Amino acid sequence: MPYFEVVTAVAAPPDRVFAVCLDVEAHTRSMAASSERAVDGRTRGELLPGETVTFQARHFGLTWRLTARITSYDPPRRFVDEQESGPFKRWRHAHHFEPDGSGGTVMKDVIDFASPLGPIGRIADKLLLSWYMPRLIRTRNAYLASTFG
């Protein structure tokens, strides 16, 4: 199963970073390059425990939809979103927020996922998505971190 982590320093306290990471509109702005937008569930504001959002975006020239639910919520330290429906066989994204000791936050994204289609999906995971997905999360995090600067 593919797995990766991305660690990002953010110049804001954990409670503020936690909130912006749950903000649907901040997320869609951070993914503007893929024309991402919220099309169902909570489409504005901050996601709460148990809520879902469906994002639609273009990746690899195709339009995809992914519905995620907030399955774990421990403010301002951690939350988890998991795919309920969408292109992956499995998608689980744990977001961790720790104080950095100087008023900022160390944000850690821990993601495990798997593509469908058995051996073909495993090849896609290894050759394409293991490079593409961490890059996408780093781009998202850079945008979110810049909103505090």
Rank of each mutant, 00 (worst) to 15 (best):
residue 67 T to A: 09
residue 132 Y to S: 05
residue 84 E to Q: 09
residue 124 A to N: 05
residue 82 E to P: 01
residue 108 K to T: 12
residue 91 W to S: 07
residue 77 R to D: 06
residue 94 A to R: 15
residue 133 M to F: 15
residue 102 S to P: 00
residue 88 F to D: 01
residue 66 L to R: 09
residue 124 A to R: 11
residue 141 N to T: 07
residue 68 A to Y: 01
residue 88 F to T: 01
residue 66 L to C: 15
residue 100 D to F: 10
residue 122 R to H: 08
residue 88 F to E: 01
residue 115 S to K: 01
residue 84 E to A: 05
residue 79 F to Q: 08
residue 91 W to N: 07
residue 120 I to K: 04
residue 89 K to F: 10
residue 81 D to N: 11
residue 87 P to H: 02
residue 100 D to R: 12
residue 73 Y to F: 15
residue 71 T to C: 06
residue 95 H to E: 08
residue 67 T to R: 15
residue 77 R to V: 03
residue 106 V to F: 02
residue 83 Q to P: 09
residue 124 A to E: 00
residue 94 A to L: 12
residue 108 K to C: 03
residue 67 T to W: 00
residue 87 P to Y: 05
residue 119 P to I: 06
residue 72 S to Y: 08
residue 134 P to C: 11
residue 125 D to T: 04
residue 125 D to C: 05
residue 75 P to S: 11
residue 135 R to C: 01
residue 104 G to C: 09
residue 121 G to C: 05
residue 100 D to E: 10
residue 81 D to Y: 08
residue 110 V to Y: 02
residue 81 D to A: 09
residue 119 P to N: 03
residue 102 S to Y: 03
residue 100 D to P: 07
residue 107 M to R: 04
residue 85 S to G: 07
residue 80 V to K: 10
residue 103 G to N: 11
residue 103 G to C: 10
residue 77 R to Q: 14
residue 135 R to P: 00
residue 132 Y to D: 10
residue 139 T to M: 13
residue 71 T to L: 08
residue 141 N to A: 14
residue 73 Y to A: 12
residue 112 D to Y: 07
residue 125 D to K: 14
residue 131 W to A: 15
residue 93 H to R: 09
residue 122 R to F: 06
residue 117 L to W: 08
residue 109 D to S: 09
residue 97 F to W: 04
residue 138 R to P: 02
residue 126 K to G: 14
residue 142 A to W: 00
residue 124 A to C: 03
residue 87 P to K: 04
residue 138 R to V: 06
residue 110 V to W: 03
residue 115 S to R: 06
residue 124 A to T: 12
residue 119 P to C: 02
residue 70 I to Y: 00
residue 98 E to N: 02
residue 105 T to Y: 06
residue 79 F to I: 08
residue 102 S to C: 09
residue 85 S to H: 11
residue 120 I to T: 13
residue 134 P to G: 08
residue 84 E to F: 00
